[in-house]
């Protein structure tokens, strides 16, 4: 199973207004929708939004890993 699909331009691309980037997988997430489904979480005072509960749980288990500057969000 191929898990390393690089998402081009993640680091530099800015999110569209009203959407955010999932820090785990790099998908673009609609903020309102994510909030409504409970797919948001706080860490160190910041709010993050996730594409699905998997990413949210992953993030919750080890936030430092995904916030590290060398981490490349990938599918």
């Amino acid at each position: 199973m191929d898990k390393q699909l690089p998402i081009a331009g993640h680091h530099t691309g800015a999110a569209q207004p009203g959407s955010a980037i999932d820090p785990v997988c790099g998908m673009t997430v609609d903020i309102a929708g994510a909030t409504a489904r409970g797919l948001s979480g706080e860490h160190n005072g910041m709010t993050f939004y996730f594409c699905g509960k998997g990413c949210k749980l992953e993030f919750g288990d080890d936030p430092g890993r995904f916030l590290d500057s060398t981490y490349v969000p990938s599918m």
């Binding site: 699909l5 699905g52 599918m75």
Partner: peptide, 11 residues
């Protein structure tokens, strides 16, 4: 409830 590849990884 799977949405992206990291769900896959996790499971």
């Amino acid at each position: 409830g799977m949405t992206c590849a990291s769900c896959v990884n996790r499971i």
